[in-house]
Design a protein around this nucleic acid. Structure first.
Lengths: 346, 346
DNA sequence: CTGTTAGCGCCTTCAC
DNA sequence: GTGAAGGCGCTAACAG
């Protein structure tokens, strides 16, 4: 492996000169430049990341702290991970994955060993062990998900409350009076997942404000069994708002299997559906803006890393830092090509 | 940030002694051990990864080279990424994500800057630019996906050929004579995706061996439109084998919407479905063994990294190395709780 | 505009 | 059983 010394020797200059040329950290004469670049080329030289980091205390790596979740969630988390990786690269960072265990030791280890300049925390709950970790270590971080303490750290999130409210309001506006809000699972609620709590709150507000009956039901992980049960019974709903990116297709399948036409017999609005799902079916929906969230949270994390490099950014200043870096609550957008169908008049 | 020197000072020993204690690279008296550990604790010391790497030329990081794919595949790729991250951690590695661009510069950069000890290449095609890169750089690597040149590098994959064959054979055994094989898209085939080509080959072999009529149709990304078209017509199939992890629910919905009962009117077998999908419906299927593939490919990559550390492992030995490290073709397992339904007698 | 020098933090000989 | 010293590859401070 060629080192900067080899390059310097070959180009007939000092090692530091090579460094200056490559980092453009100082004006260098065109001729020297040319010679250096040629030597680099000929030797196939590439700077060693570890040496650079040791010297400069920057890694150009961001850590992504995934929550520990079950298999099905991993598809969504992974989707984010890849988009965040893209976003990071565009800002000049690589992305290191850490899957959180009980006490976020992965994140702690990465932060303390100086493997990354900042962290992105995915899918944070209202309270989240990872938040404690980054604050304790004064490690720059940005979150996807809106924590209970909104001012502790920069974050981005879809406005789930507004999204659920919007879905209910639009269904009510289309004439529906009996609506079921299919919320995340009980488990997610008792884990105090931010999106779950806020979504339910939004649905409740929608009920209150429209006067429609909104029954909040938790998904139980088995749409094929649960959906028919919901739709039968005396007060059969005419509309369903579903807050679960993955199971929407299964719900449609279940409805179809139960002999219901969508949307004639049952209007369905999806909240937080994944973009790019290859179903041709254009369902009314509020999409989870994965790409936007990924780009924003990455920007915030990178900004936090930069800010900490400025002289005078002492640890106690981090709370202030968070506020100055800012938050981003993304307003929901309802996509409904053909409008929302009303209830079948009967 | 505390350094090894600080710890040494506090414990009243030499820096090297601290190193010995922490790495257990030499017997140290219990008393000294205790004092060192206490100092470590009190100062919150953690060795700096960059310094350790600079010294030892090992990073304890694996790189994951994702293919550039469109959004829908990202859910699957991401699922793998997270499982691989878990597997890596279990072997003592962290995982660095790189999303491949045209010429896999990401991977190249990571390899050359010494950011990782080995790479895992996800979703490799029959021919794949990333393979050239790792071979050219003599960078240890393992693949998910079975490349055309099977002996160049270690790999793991589901045996797609056998999977498709098995699906067709079982459908035929259940009495079906008119079967549609819904294969990956044309685009995937012309990109020479390994799973697509091999799956189709397996379906063809199944047809040949069972005498059933198997029509191979490429998914066009819009099940709601495509499926009814497939199921109508003069020679309506009684069974469908679907090689596409994500669209299965949409296909079931489309079938239901077309007035077909599954499985009475149409038997459906899914090939390469994602595990843990929260659809309650127990569909006959051959699951993509994500966890197994992730664990195996990680093991292979780590082994390749270790092997290259052995003295005498010169670059020309890498091909041999690959063979000694080995491959793993995972046999398909058909999951069909209630057996596979036969065609409705008519 | 370019060269020299010192050290980032760690590990590993080598000497005691 | 312990300590001192050197160097991994790079960059920033200090000459010239």
């Amino acid at each position: 492996m060629a080192t900067i010394k080899d390059v310097a020797e070959r180009a007939g200059v000092a090692p530091s000169t090579v460094s200056y040329v490559l980092n453009e950290s100082r004006p260098i004469s065109p001729e020297t430049c040319r010679r250096v670049r040629q030597a680099v080329e000929e030797l196939g030289y590439h700077p060693r990341a570890s040496a650079r980091t040791l010297r400069s205390t920057r890694t150009d790596v961001l850590a992504l702290a995934l929550p520990r979740t079950d298999g099905s969630q991993r598809a969504i988390d992974g989707r984010f991970a890849i988009d965040i990786s893209d976003a990071a690269r565009r800002l000049g960072y690589d992305l290191l994955l850490t899957t959180a265990q009980e006490k976020a030791e992965g994140l702690r280890r990465v932060a303390r060993s100086g493997l990354a300049d900042a962290a992105v925390l995915m899918a944070v709950d209202m309270e989240d062990a990872r938040i404690e970790v980054v604050r304790e270590l004064a490690f720059p971080a940005a979150l996807i998900g809106r924590p209970a303490d909104e001012h502790a750290l920069p974050w981005t999130d879809l406005d789930w409350e507004a999204a659920a409210f919007l879905a209910v309001r639009e269904l009510a506006a289309a004439g529906h009076r009996e609506i079921v809000y299919l919320a995340p699972t009980e488990r997610e609620v008792s884990a105090r997942r931010s999106y779950a709590l806020r979504g339910i709150a939004g649905a409740r507000r929608g009920a209150q404000q429209t006067g429609a009956t909104v029954r909040v039901v938790h998904a139980d992980g088995d749409p094929a069994r649960q959906v028919p049960a919901l739709l039968g019974g005396p007060a059969a709903p005419t509309a369903l708002a579903v807050q679960h990116g993955l199971v929407l297709p299964d719900i449609l399948t279940a409805a179809a299997a139960a002999g219901l036409q969508v949307p004639e017999d049952l209007a369905v609005v999806a909240i937080g559906s994944l973009p790019d799902h290859p179903s041709g079916r254009e369902q009314p929906r509020i999409e989870l803006p994965v790409e936007t969230l990924a780009a924003e949270v990455t920007r915030l994390a990178a900004a936090a890393a930069e800010a900490l490099r400025e002289p005078g950014a002492s640890p106690p200043a981090q709370r202030l830092l968070a506020d100055s870096v800012g938050h981003l609550l993304i307003p929901p957008v309802l996509l409904a090509e053909g409008g929302i169908a009303g209830p079948r008049s009967r």
